[in-house]
Computed example of a mutant assay.
Amino acid sequence: MPGIIGKKIGMTSVFSPDGESIACTVIEAGPCVVTQVKNEETDGYRAVQLAFGEKKEKNTSKAAIGHFKKANTTPKRNVAEFRDFRKEFDGLVELGKEIRVQDVFVEGDFIDAIGTSKGKGFQGVVKRHNFAGVGGQTHGQHNRLRAPGSMGNASFASRVPKGKRLGGRMGTDRVKLANLKVVKILPEQNVIIVSGSVPGAKNATVILQK
């Protein structure tokens, strides 16, 4: 399997054999259900669709209910498609089969985590783009420490150029962090612990993939 869907629980620290404290993220990964298998003959590419998290049937569309019934499972909250999985997983991706975290990863693997970053609302250029501000208060500067500075030329163009880094909405972006090490797997709790931080708030959906 190329990946699994999970939910971010929070952060903790784990001690390495050398006594070093490693900041880690705890993720409840799976169990996921295979709700669709695509192949090159019918769909033009190889992919497997996984579903994770329970959802009330009254809040699910009739089309989605029928889709999940084909896999003989209850409605799920999160669905993700993993493309181009390796051929050795052909027997594992049968429709309706349950996928657990130990079926996908082992301790020591390096994986990628995809999530939605926390929303921070409207922010200025210092926080959003790491600007330093205009600087000191000489030459008539006043209350300009966090200002964006010059916007561009005045006479020619007479407008703010496209792509100018200014204040604006920050966060709620799809973020992918690569090469996070799997520190520990707890199969009984469906938990995986990875080194470093993972984008998103607590209880946010996270996609883990190789």
Rank of each mutant, 00 (worst) to 15 (best):
P31F: 12
N78P: 00
T25C: 08
A63Y: 08
E40P: 01
G30H: 08
K38S: 05
F68M: 07
C32Q: 12
D43A: 11
D84Q: 11
G66E: 13
L92I: 05
G44S: 15
A64E: 15
V26G: 03
A64S: 15
A29L: 12
N78S: 07
Y45W: 01
V26S: 02
F85C: 04
A80E: 07
A71S: 08
P31K: 07
K55P: 01
V101T: 04
A64H: 13
G66P: 08
N72G: 07
A51E: 12
D84A: 10
H67Q: 13
V101N: 12
K87Y: 04
V101Q: 09
Q49T: 06
V34D: 08
E28H: 14
I99E: 14
A64P: 04
T74K: 15
D103H: 11
T35G: 03
V101P: 08
T25L: 03
V101Y: 09
V93P: 05
Q49A: 00
N78R: 14
G53R: 15
F89V: 01
R100M: 00
V106M: 09
V101R: 08
E28M: 06
F85M: 10
F110E: 06
G66N: 15
F15H: 08
F82C: 03
E107A: 04
H67C: 07
K55G: 03
F82P: 06
E81H: 00
R86L: 05
N59M: 09
R86F: 00
I65H: 03
D103M: 04
T42C: 00
T73S: 10
T73L: 06
P31R: 13
E54P: 03
E57P: 01
R77K: 14
F15G: 02
K87T: 08
I27P: 01
A71T: 04
K69V: 03
E81V: 05
R83D: 02
Q49S: 00
I99K: 14
G53K: 14
D43N: 11
E81M: 02
A23L: 07
S16C: 04
T73A: 11
N59G: 06
F52S: 14
Q102C: 10
P75A: 12
F82A: 08
E28R: 11
E57D: 10
G19P: 01
V106E: 12
N39I: 10
D18F: 08
P31N: 12
C24E: 09
D109Y: 07
V93D: 09
V101G: 11
K58F: 05
E40A: 13
A63P: 00
G96T: 08
K76R: 15
N72T: 09
V34S: 09
I99C: 14
A63D: 10
